[in-house]
């Protein structure tokens, strides 16, 4: 894809325009990057705040109205609700149930259950459930 970069003099003039025939996953990623959604999720750690990088997150779970962010080795609490995080996270994140968002890139494999749900095994060996209604979204995000 041809990329044009033009220098401007003020921040008001800064912007990006993407001309594409189709919004592919790569373009979604580029949009996320330009909108600064790749950075991370601010999480509480002790009395301070730590930014949890989105490429390190395995899944995010809501339990008793609290939201927890899980990485390979840590679990952090964040003030954001799942619906807010859905807008902040890159394209390769999937709402997999009412109470969970998963990083698709951290899924090792899925297994179909009898009632049309799927059980996903993550790269760290943990297992999560992908509800029936979200399997369609997973397939869409994988381009199937």
């Amino acid at each position: 894809m041809k990329v044009d970069v033009r220098k401007v003099v003020s921040t008001e003039e800064e912007g990006a325009e993407i001309r594409a025939m189709e919004i592919t996953e790569e373009i979604q990623e580029a949009i996320g990057l330009l909108e600064n959604r790749r950075g991370g999720i601010p999480c509480a750690e002790g009395s301070g705040t730590v930014v949890c990088r989105t490429d390190e997150i395995y899944y995010i779970e809501s339990v008793d109205k609290r939201t927890y962010v899980y990485t390979k080795e840590h679990c952090y609490e964040t003030k954001f609700r799942l619906y807010e995080l859905e807008d902040m996270l890159p394209f390769h994140y999937l709402r997999c149930s009412k109470a969970m968002i998963v990083n698709i890139r951290k899924i090792r494999s899925v297994k179909a259950d009898l009632n049309a749900r799927m059980t996903a095994e993550l790269l760290n060996g943990e297992q999560i459930v992908i509800s029936r209604s979200y399997v369609k979204d997973l397939k869409r995000k994988l381009g199937l």
Partner: peptide, 21 residues
């Protein structure tokens, strides 16, 4: 139904391998 779901499972697992960290 089980066969159809297994078919989906196979397609998803193949696609996951392409983007897996």
């Amino acid at each position: 139904m089980f066969w159809l779901n297994k078919k989906d499972e196979k397609k998803i697992n193949e696609a996951l391998k392409e983007i897996q960290d």
